[in-house]
Design a protein around this nucleic acid. Sequence first.
DNA 1: CTGGTTAGTGGGAGTGATTGTCGTTAGCGT
DNA 2: ACGCTAACGACAATCACTCCCACTAACCAG
Lengths: 142, 142
Amino acid sequence: MATTQQRTTVQGGAVRSVLVQSAGFSSAQDIHAALRRQGKPVGLSTVYRHLQSLVEQGVADVIQSPDGEATYRYCGETTSAHHHHLVCRKCGHTEEVTAPAIERWAAQIASKFDFSDVDHTVEIFGTCAPCRKGSAQSAAKS
Amino acid sequence: MATTQQRTTVQGGAVRSVLVQSAGFSSAQDIHAALRRQGKPVGLSTVYRHLQSLVEQGVADVIQSPDGEATYRYCGETTSAHHHHLVCRKCGHTEEVTAPAIERWAAQIASKFDFSDVDHTVEIFGTCAPCRKGSAQSAAKS
DNA sequence: CTGGTTAGTGGGAGTGATTGTCGTTAGCGT
DNA sequence: ACGCTAACGACAATCACTCCCACTAACCAG
Ligand SMILES: [Mn+2]
Ligand SMILES: [Mn+2]
Ligand SMILES: [Zn+2]
Ligand SMILES: [Zn+2]
């Protein structure tokens, strides 16, 4: 009897691969374009499908860019523990950070106001050193 | 000679008014609908325009809802100091919180990785006590 | 008060990301 | 190989949000 119910497809691998190799956060459209550029075009719908799936699996995380576009970033299984990001708003370079203190604080605040099923988002934006010096944009998207 | 360059209009007041009276975060569309319901319809473009303006003035803040819709919330001038939110994901009820510790932490992380022009977003989501008990949604939107 | 200047308005078209549809492909267990 | 059906992908459809631009109404000088 079946057990898989989860077929492995080339497209799935391709999408994941592009995401893994990208430096910062990239949009579905970026990834779709990258795939096409690499000569292995994948349908846009498929890109979205895999991206969602990766997010559900906790392999990637999404954040809504300030202009409302969803951007995805790979979070290695090694790094997959709960964490936050320090993102350069120019080049997208991202540093992953953890802060037990913050987690503790969030939980404390939540209980203080009697909220349950707590969750939170913490993102820090800034300009990284390289971008600050020369406006010499380093490598943007892959 | 002119000095104003900022006319006071009924529409502007109406938009602001609706925003002020709303409990949690509401989308531009919500506000547009509320105004129509109140019998003082305001063009959608105008609603967006005022909302942006309020944000620039720091009178309101925006956060991108998980499904990518921009939602706005009034931040009284009294409360206008930098702060964060604890939002009920069911009824939208929001508590404003401040946390010097977090601010300090953010600054520290930023300098550690040599990032400048730092800014950050911290939002906590959960289910408030009322919503947790009865699934008796309290007052949703205005 | 009144006319002129022009910020502000709003209906409608345009944009662009994301989702839905559904006939066609291609994993994979048998 | 074979068949069942998950996964594709081209294209249509949504939908929040922005543009455009003729029109309205603040507001200031006279
Ligand atoms: Mn991450
Ligand atoms: Mn606030
Ligand atoms: Zn940078
Ligand atoms: Zn609630």
